[in-house]
């Protein structure tokens, strides 16, 4: 029974599946990092853009526009090669990737959240001030939760696009799924088999993430129905 199954599977899969699994885990690890750092940072950036002191607001707006209007690959290269000049030490691909992804995702998430904040009725802020609610409480307990939930569909799209973007890390030699697959492909000289398998792995993982995000969206929207 089992031998029939192994005969059906292509050779490279039997030999290299551990590498593919670990590559996929590295991809997911970087996605998790991009969300874990990028989302809270995006919240901060959005609030600064709308309500920060001008001295802080202008550089932050400039940064967000610079990141959102240039390709991620160029940013990653730039960061990877600029870090040694700024800090005098060579940067590992992982460190450059982590910095680049976090910076970029923060800017994209902040734009979603900012849109949500702008769409909230002005009266809420006035009412909160009238009730004597402090600024910290106003932002963290009243405005941000609503803005985040309202813009979940946009943020889900951002998550998916960063899931795809983790593949770009292969260009600066981070051993994630794409790079692993390219290595296996050149070693086995079977690009069609390996790259198609890789595409399927991405499709399954991405489909799973999209499904999970839809469930999360539905759950949060239901809880916050107003």
């Amino acid at each position: 029974m089992f031998s029939i199954l192994t005969d059906l599977l292509p050779d490279f899969l039997l030999r290299y599946w551990p590498a593919l699994v670990s590559g996929a885990l590295v991809s997911l690890k970087f996605l998790a990092w991009a969300i874990a750092i990028g989302f809270p940072a995006g919240m901060g950036i959005a609030v600064i853009q709308l309500n920060g002191p001008a001295l802080l607001r202008l550089p932050v707006i400039a940064l967000v526009e610079m990141v959102r209007n240039t390709p991620l690959l160029v940013q990653l290269w730039w960061i990877h090669f600029a870090i040694p000049i700024l800090f005098g030490a060579r940067s590992s691909p992982e460190v450059s990737a982590a910095i680049g992804l976090a910076l970029s995702s923060a800017c994209y998430f902040s734009e979603n959240i900012r849109g949500g904040l702008l769409a909230l009725p002005e009266g809420q802020r006035e009412a909160a001030t009238g009730l004597g609610i402090g600024r910290w409480c106003l932002w963290t307990r009243i405005l941000l939760p609503q803005a985040i939930i309202d813009t979940l569909p946009a943020s889900a799209n951002t998550v998916l696009s960063f899931f795809k973007a983790t593949s770009i890390l292969s260009v600066i030699a981070v051993p994630e799924l794409m790079m692993t697959a390219m290595r296996i492909s050149s070693r086995t000289a079977d690009p069609i088999g390996v790259l198609t398998t890789m595409t399927l792995i991405y499709a399954v993982l991405g489909g799973g993430i999209a499904f999970a995000l839809r469930r999360l969206e539905a759950a949060l929207m239901l809880r916050s129905r107003r």
Partner: peptide, 23 residues
Amino acid sequence: VALFRVVPELGVIFWSYYCLPLL
């Protein structure tokens, strides 16, 4: 449409460079 929503752009590019000519 659903497939290209989740498959990385770079994957499609590699596929079309390494596999398409063979096919």
